[in-house]
Measured scan of single mutants.
Amino acid sequence: MAAAAAAGAGPEMVRGQVFDVGPRYTNLSYIGEGAYGMVCSAYDNVNKVRVAIKKISPFEHQTYCQRTLREIKILLRFRHENIIGINDIIRAPTIEQMKDVYIVQDLMETDLYKLLKTQHLSNDHICYFLYQILRGLKYIHSANVLHRDLKPSNLLLNTTCDLKICDFGLARVADPDHDHTGFLTEYVATRWYRAPEIMLNSKGYTKSIDIWSVGCILAEMLSNRPIFPGKHYLDQLNHILGILGSPSQEDLNCIINLKARNYLLSLPHKNKVPWNRLFPNADSKALDLLDKMLTFNPHKRIEVEQALAHPYLEQYYDPSDEPIAEAPFKFDMELDDLPKEKLKELIFEETARFQPGYRS
């Protein structure tokens, strides 16, 4: 834990890192770190609560700039109880001085990944967590956004079992017609939660990839272990087919990539493993919904509104309290091709509203 900075004593240090967030945020305490930044909790002297502050230093890398800009653009436009918001952003007053960006968010005690390492969940908890994931996802999908990296560590939890989806750095506007060349190379989302079509096709992607990830998360809540822990690309596919069985001819016809289709045709026939054999203690309604989410063919996979209306979630289902976005989200430009200098300018502009004396 960093010592509390005395008023006016300059930035606090946390594990050798400068955290320049005073005077409003003090009493910093280390939480963890990701690929390009550290997260601390801090005391907000204005709202009198502890908050989470993520320090991001992305400006050396085009990919990190892209992810940072995506996350900020999306989260500043989203407003939903099951999606983490941005409360404040701290950065230098000029673009030349801006080396880091500090993002202030609600402090959540833990995440689903940490929880599943230590606790076996009751059916009631599984049901409530799944409902909140789908409630947040309904809003995301209504904005025409794909999260693309749903996994237990991106689901934040607090002691009252509130759940918030975080990390929109890989999110995209849904565009089933656009052929994202190089899709697989830039697709760094965790393999275990990846839909089979991501490994088999490169053309376009749809909201059904997020539903697949939610199915993987439900299976993990039922058993405290990942359902498809593939060691590499082909191993991942083999794990999936080992449980779902061989795809039907109709399902194979959806695979545009001939090499991928021929690979699947070359494999020995596998039978589907019954879900109640894998999860003998699970609620039968939970397994019915799991089956509809972990469907090989993305066109037959359940959609988020149908999933919310499934009998497993009937005690929570309330369409009048499951809000959607006001308007579909649009990125003005494809960020993939922009140089990091341009992305830095866009991050600077996007964060201006939090600067003292800002006038829109």
Rank of each mutant, 00 (worst) to 15 (best):
S284R: 10
A143L: 08
P323Y: 14
A3K: 11
R91D: 14
S320Q: 12
K344E: 02
I31G: 14
I95F: 00
E60F: 15
I140R: 02
F78E: 05
F279N: 13
R301E: 02
F168V: 08
Y317K: 15
H141N: 00
C166M: 08
C216L: 03
S266N: 06
H141E: 10
I217V: 11
A35H: 06
C161G: 14
A195F: 04
Q132F: 08
I56G: 06
A282R: 06
F228R: 05
A260G: 06
D167Q: 06
S153C: 01
L69I: 08
N271E: 06
A325M: 15
A7N: 14
S122K: 10
A6L: 04
Y358F: 01
D337V: 02
K203S: 05
N158V: 07
D291I: 07
R359Y: 14
A327N: 15
V145S: 12
F354E: 04
M333N: 10
R50T: 14
V21A: 07
G10A: 08
T351Q: 14
P93E: 12
K259M: 00
K114H: 06
V46I: 05
M38Q: 09
K330E: 05
N158A: 06
L237N: 04
G230N: 12
F228C: 10
L170V: 09
I302A: 05
E345A: 15
G245C: 00
L244W: 04
M199G: 03
H299E: 07
Y312T: 04
E322N: 15
S223M: 07
L184W: 03
I89N: 03
L287D: 04
T94L: 08
L184V: 04
A174F: 14
L222E: 05
D124H: 08
H178W: 08
E96A: 08
P328D: 06
A171F: 05
A2R: 11
G230R: 09
Q119N: 15
R91P: 14
R194L: 02
N238H: 01
L157T: 09
F59W: 07
I31D: 10
L343Y: 09
E334H: 14
E305G: 13
R194T: 04
E326D: 00
L244D: 04
C216S: 00
G8W: 13
Q17L: 02
C166P: 02
T110Y: 08
E71V: 01
D336K: 07
N262D: 06
E71D: 01
C166K: 02
T63N: 11
L69Y: 14
N224M: 08
L222I: 13
P298L: 05
L313V: 15
I240F: 00
L252G: 08
L137H: 01
F279T: 15
F129Y: 01
D20G: 12
R15F: 09
D100S: 15
L346A: 09
S223Q: 03
D162V: 04
E345W: 15
S248W: 08
V273A: 08
Q315A: 11
F78T: 13
G136E: 01
E305F: 14
E314K: 02
D20F: 08
L237T: 08
E96M: 15
E81A: 11
M221Y: 04
P247R: 04
H299A: 12
L156D: 02
Q17M: 12
L258T: 10
D124P: 10
G85F: 13
N297R: 04
P274A: 07
M38A: 04
S57R: 12
V145H: 06
I140W: 02
P298M: 12
Q17W: 15
H125D: 01
K48L: 06
Y233G: 03
D291P: 09
N27L: 06
H310G: 05
L116F: 08
I72V: 10
R225T: 14
R148K: 02
D321V: 01
R194W: 04
A174Q: 07
P93K: 12
A309F: 14
I53L: 10
G34T: 06
L218F: 05
W275A: 07
A92S: 01
P152N: 08
G245W: 03
T160L: 10
V104R: 06
P11R: 04
S202D: 04
Y64G: 07
R77G: 13
L258R: 12
E326V: 01
A219M: 01
N144D: 04
V21E: 00
N144R: 05
H125C: 04
P298V: 10
G204K: 06
D88S: 13
P268H: 01
T295S: 00
E349D: 00
S266W: 12
L146R: 05
L289S: 02
I255H: 10
I126Y: 08
M333I: 00
D44Y: 00
Y312V: 09
G32D: 04
E349N: 15
P58L: 08
G357L: 08
D288H: 13
L252H: 10
G16L: 07
C161D: 07
D210W: 03
V39T: 07
N271D: 10
F168R: 04
Y205I: 06
K48D: 07
I86L: 10
H180C: 06
T94C: 07
I90A: 15
I133Q: 11
E12Q: 05
V21P: 12
N281A: 13
I31C: 15
S142T: 03
A42F: 15
L294Y: 03
S57C: 11
D124F: 07
R194Q: 02
I217E: 02
L200E: 01
K55S: 09
E303W: 13
A42C: 12
T159E: 04
A35Q: 05
P339R: 06
D88F: 15
T159M: 07
H178R: 02
D288W: 10
N271L: 14
K344W: 12
L258V: 10
D44L: 09
L290E: 02
V145W: 05
Y43P: 09
W192D: 03
K292N: 01
Y233W: 08
K340H: 10
L294D: 03
G34A: 03
N123T: 12
L294Q: 01
E186L: 08
Q105G: 08
M221G: 06
T190G: 01
A174M: 14
I302D: 03
F348K: 08
G242D: 02
R194M: 02
I89Q: 13
I240M: 05
L184F: 05
I72T: 10
D111N: 01
K344Y: 09
L116W: 10
E326R: 10
A171C: 12
I227E: 05
I95H: 10
R359E: 06
L278R: 13
A309C: 15
G245P: 02
I217Y: 03
R24Q: 12
R91N: 15
F78G: 08
Y25S: 05
F168P: 08
F129G: 12
F59K: 12
G230A: 10
F59H: 15
R277A: 10
Q132M: 10
G242E: 11
M293K: 00
D235T: 06
L335P: 10
I126D: 02
G242T: 15
L244V: 14
H180Y: 05
L137P: 01
W275F: 12
L200T: 09
L237P: 02
L155I: 15
F348G: 08
I240T: 09
Y205Q: 03
A174Y: 14
T160K: 03
M333D: 09
E197A: 02
R135H: 05
I72L: 04
W275T: 05
D291S: 14
I302Q: 02
T110I: 06
K203V: 02
A327S: 05
Q249E: 08
V51Y: 13
A286Y: 15
C127A: 08
R353Y: 08
A352R: 06
I209P: 03
T159S: 00
K99G: 04
I72P: 12
D336I: 14
L252Q: 01
M108R: 10
E109V: 02
R277M: 11
F168M: 07
L116M: 05
N158W: 03
K73Q: 03
M13N: 06
R194K: 00
E12L: 04
I256Y: 11
L115C: 12
I90H: 14
P268N: 12
D175W: 10
K285C: 11
D179T: 05
I56R: 03
A189N: 04
R359M: 01
W275V: 09
D321A: 01
K272T: 12
G85E: 13
R148C: 02
V21I: 03
Y187T: 07
L244F: 07
L163W: 08
D332T: 08
A352L: 13
L252M: 01
K300W: 09
I227H: 03
I74D: 09
K73W: 07
A189L: 02
A7D: 05
A52N: 08
P229H: 00
F354S: 04
P328S: 05
H147D: 07
Y102N: 00
K138A: 11
S41M: 08
N262L: 06
D149E: 01
R353K: 03
V51E: 10
C254Q: 11
Y317P: 14
A143G: 11
F183C: 06
V188G: 01
P58T: 00
I126L: 05
E305N: 11
M333Y: 08
N82A: 10
T206V: 02
L278D: 07
A7I: 12
V214C: 09
L150K: 05
